[in-house]
Amino acid sequence: MKKITIADVAAHANVSKSTVSQFLNKRYDYMGEETKKRIETAVTELGYRPNIIARSLKQKSTKTIGVIVANILHVFSTQVIRAIEDFCHESNFHVIVCNADDDPVKEKRYIEMLRAKQVDGIIAFPTGENMELYQGLLDERYPFVFMDRLVPGIHMDAVLLDNKRASELAVDQFVKAGYKKIGMISPLIDMPVTPRLERIQGYKTALAKYNLSFQPEYLASGAFTDMQMIIQQMLSLSDPPEALLALNDRVLFEILQYAKDHHVNIPNDLAIIGIDDVSFASFYYPTLTTISQPAFKMGKKAAQLLFKQINQEDQGTAAQVYRFPPQLIDRESC
């Protein structure tokens, strides 16, 4: 079959090719309704499909961005992706999502792949391990925004939670409920992942505020494959904590699984607060006290920052770090 072109549509609608081009690019504010209807009818009747590649080359834009998440299993990550996709849809942009699994090798490959596909910019939850690559993007002024994390020495626009405050809110709530022996469980901290390090620091700072001494055995971290053992070890101490702060949603899942398997009553045997508001928190029994992140606002902000770079609206301005406040959602697990 003959490939339908703009010229065919123009001839069918009895208008110029430039008028069809303006219609296809939605630049028809001053175009008559009859003309628009004729072109729309011609496009439908002829089955015209725009040549996306040719248009991208002409406009020097693929109308596509990349998003590289650290782990797509996190509720926060999926909410951020949704917010970015919503924002991009309004601007007629597409989104390619990549899951790096906190692996710097995968992250590097994804950045290179997205660049090869000529995406207009990238939002990434950085591993922090590809320093030369980040610096190269920065030197090139390639549109790039850090999400959820900072990389020391790399000054890029970034969007994060006030992570220290998140832990402080949790400890405040534990103390308000009468708990003094407060533990915290984290994923592995062998990598410089900003939320983990800052939330741990916030936990220690909050304990000091209430003159509660930091007990090293009350702070544990490890791989998720070992998480049940880690929880078992902490709760088997001769003087175990009365309350546990889950550093993120996946840690919270592990604590709840342990409580179910070992018949731990929440909150009578163990009070729990999780950072990240999970979807089932309000109907789990008992309902779960959480510290929520404004994930949709954060995702939208990251997209706005990226588009400013893509549109070169940030020329001459220094990189900015935007911190969003957490919110305590008081329920029944504490």
Score class of each variant (00 low, 15 high):
residue 293 Q to Y: 10
residue 116 A to K: 13
residue 263 H to G: 10
residue 312 Q to E: 15
residue 96 I to N: 04
residue 227 M to R: 03
residue 53 I to F: 09
residue 283 F to L: 00
residue 151 V to D: 03
residue 273 I to H: 02
residue 310 I to Q: 10
residue 183 G to V: 06
residue 70 A to R: 02
residue 48 Y to C: 01
residue 186 S to D: 04
residue 12 H to Q: 05
residue 84 I to A: 03
residue 295 A to T: 14
residue 232 Q to N: 13
residue 225 T to E: 15
residue 59 Q to Y: 04
residue 277 D to M: 12
residue 121 G to N: 07
residue 12 H to K: 15
residue 300 K to C: 12
residue 69 V to F: 10
residue 186 S to P: 06
residue 286 P to I: 11
residue 233 Q to T: 12
residue 129 E to Y: 12
residue 11 A to C: 09
residue 108 K to L: 15
residue 69 V to C: 04
residue 320 Q to L: 15
residue 105 V to M: 07
residue 292 S to A: 15
residue 43 V to N: 04
residue 259 A to H: 01
residue 47 G to K: 00
residue 222 G to M: 07
residue 304 Q to T: 13
residue 261 D to F: 08
residue 156 M to F: 13
residue 120 D to W: 01
residue 203 Y to Q: 05
residue 145 V to W: 07
residue 256 L to K: 06
residue 174 F to D: 01
residue 302 A to T: 03
residue 126 P to F: 11
residue 247 L to V: 14
residue 107 E to M: 09
residue 298 M to H: 11
residue 57 L to M: 10
residue 300 K to W: 13
residue 281 A to P: 03
residue 233 Q to Y: 08
residue 301 K to H: 13
residue 80 V to Q: 06
residue 334 C to P: 05
residue 33 E to Q: 00
residue 301 K to V: 05
residue 200 I to N: 01
residue 8 D to Y: 04
residue 273 I to F: 07
residue 31 M to V: 10
residue 5 T to H: 10
residue 25 N to W: 13
residue 42 A to P: 00
residue 278 V to T: 13
residue 205 T to H: 08
residue 309 Q to E: 12
residue 144 F to D: 08
residue 60 K to Q: 11
residue 182 I to N: 03
residue 127 T to P: 01
residue 94 H to R: 05
residue 34 E to I: 07
residue 79 Q to P: 02
residue 271 A to E: 05
residue 115 R to S: 10
residue 52 I to E: 14
residue 191 M to L: 14
residue 217 E to M: 12
residue 93 F to V: 11
residue 102 D to R: 09
residue 293 Q to V: 14
residue 25 N to P: 06
residue 39 I to V: 01
residue 106 K to C: 03
residue 198 E to Y: 12
residue 114 L to G: 04
residue 257 Q to G: 14
residue 200 I to V: 08
residue 282 S to Y: 09
residue 255 I to Q: 01
residue 128 G to Y: 05
residue 295 A to I: 08
residue 240 P to T: 06
residue 131 M to A: 01
residue 197 L to P: 01
residue 123 I to P: 02
residue 99 N to G: 10
residue 143 P to R: 08
residue 274 G to S: 14
residue 32 G to I: 11
residue 239 D to V: 10
residue 183 G to M: 08
residue 122 I to W: 02
residue 117 K to M: 14
residue 285 Y to L: 04
residue 127 T to W: 06
residue 74 H to M: 13
residue 123 I to S: 05
residue 136 G to V: 07
residue 111 I to L: 11
residue 330 D to E: 15
residue 159 V to I: 14
residue 230 I to N: 01
residue 82 R to V: 03
residue 228 Q to Y: 07
residue 113 M to P: 00
residue 192 P to E: 14
residue 144 F to C: 12
residue 91 S to C: 00
residue 268 N to S: 12
residue 334 C to H: 08
residue 226 D to S: 15
residue 206 A to W: 02
residue 205 T to K: 11
residue 94 H to K: 15
residue 142 Y to T: 02
residue 83 A to E: 04
residue 182 I to L: 08
residue 47 G to N: 00
residue 122 I to M: 09
residue 199 R to T: 06
residue 179 Y to W: 14
residue 235 L to A: 05
residue 51 N to T: 06
residue 13 A to L: 12
residue 23 F to M: 00
residue 232 Q to Y: 13
residue 266 I to R: 03
residue 156 M to L: 15
residue 250 R to L: 15
residue 135 Q to R: 15
residue 248 N to E: 05
residue 255 I to M: 09
residue 157 D to G: 08
residue 258 Y to T: 00
